[in-house]
Design a protein around this nucleic acid. Structure first.
Length: 276
DNA sequence: AAAATGAGCAACCGCGAGGTG
DNA sequence: TCACCTCGCGGTTGCTCATTT
């Protein structure tokens, strides 16, 4: 029984998106908002699969996206979140304003992984490499496996929570507490970090409202200067651009919207929430 | 200067979750 | 309860560009 393809493969274009396609997609979403992705390509006049449209939008065209490499704070946060959540990139991304799961995943695979290995840390377990090797041997024991499964049923590979001393001491170290790598445990740690608004925000049940509903906040406090106008108005100039190429100018102007420029980690989640 | 190799990243694929009739 | 559909996620691929030989 073959799975039904997400779209009609015939006549569906694949590969890199052109500026023209980007323009069509942005134009459509600005006009209609995000609706049924399956219908988007048809309605927008794109010969693309709906899935591809969604991916393009969420990973590249969304105006609140930050571009460029992750800064040190973001990178440290990714490492720590990965230690707790494992490869749940979307969950990790939800706690990094303006970053996408794909971007974080790529950054992890290309930069952080190597960095950790260089430091002698196993990027999977977040334990010192020699220690994890020893541990792997010990893990042959079915007893320990069972214990791990019981204690951390949802943990990746049923591994016990990684230790946290591996995290750079110069950064905050929320994982210094006993913790597991699952979200429930993330939540469980919240009280520990109550005093730190950033940390407590990061480990809240519901992540900070990073995902704007594709409308810019209308608060007068918005320092970006976008506060008075609508999303449509703000983006209209984009659509008027000749040779539209989002890659080339990266929506930088939007990065200031809704949170502090340059470093989204400085945002105040409560304030953001009010802004919506 | 050209070929080989590696790194980075956008995009694709397949699967599972959740919603609906 | 079941089948179907859409969406989102995570793993993987493959293209492009930079660096090395």
């Amino acid at each position: 029984m073959g799975r039904q393809p997400c779209c009609d493969k015939l006549g569906v274009k694949k590969g890199p998106w052109t500026a023209e396609e980007d323009k069509k997609l942005i134009n459509f979403i600005l006009t209609n908002g995000q609706c049924c992705w399956r219908a988007v390509p048809k309605l927008a006049g794109l010969r693309r699969c709906g899935k591809s449209c969604r991916l393009r939008w969420t990973n590249y065209l969304r105006p609140d996206l930050k571009r460029g490499l992750l800064n040190d704070a973001e990178e440290q946060l990714v490492i720590d979140l990965h230690a707790r959540l494992g490869n749940r990139w979307s969950k990790i991304a939800a706690r990094l304003p303006g970053r996408t799961d794909n971007e974080i995943k790529n950054h992890w695979n290309t930069h952080i992984k190597k960095k950790l290995l260089k430091m002698g840390i196993d990027p999977v377990t977040h334990e010192p490499l020699n220690k994890s090797e020893t541990k792997e041997e010990n893990d042959q024991s079915s007893q320990s496996d069972q214990l791990a499964t019981e204690q951390f049923p949802e943990t990746e590979n049923n591994q016990p929570p990684p230790p946290t001393k591996v995290i750079d001491e110069t950064s905050y170290s929320p994982t210094d507490q006993n913790s597991s790598s699952d979200e429930s445990n993330v939540r469980g740690d919240c009280n520990v970090y109550e005093n730190d608004p950033l940390i407590s925000c990061l480990f809240r049940d519901d992540p900070p409202p990073i995902e704007f509903p594709w409308e810019f906040p209308t608060t007068q406090e918005n320092p970006s200067g976008f506060s008075e106008s609508s999303w449509d108005q703000n983006c209209q100039w984009l659509l008027d651009c000749q040779d539209f190429g989002v890659h080339d100018f990266g929506f930088e102007c939007f990065n200031d919207v809704g949170y502090s420029a340059g470093n989204g980690l400085e945002l105040d989640p409560l304030e953001m929430g009010n802004n919506q």
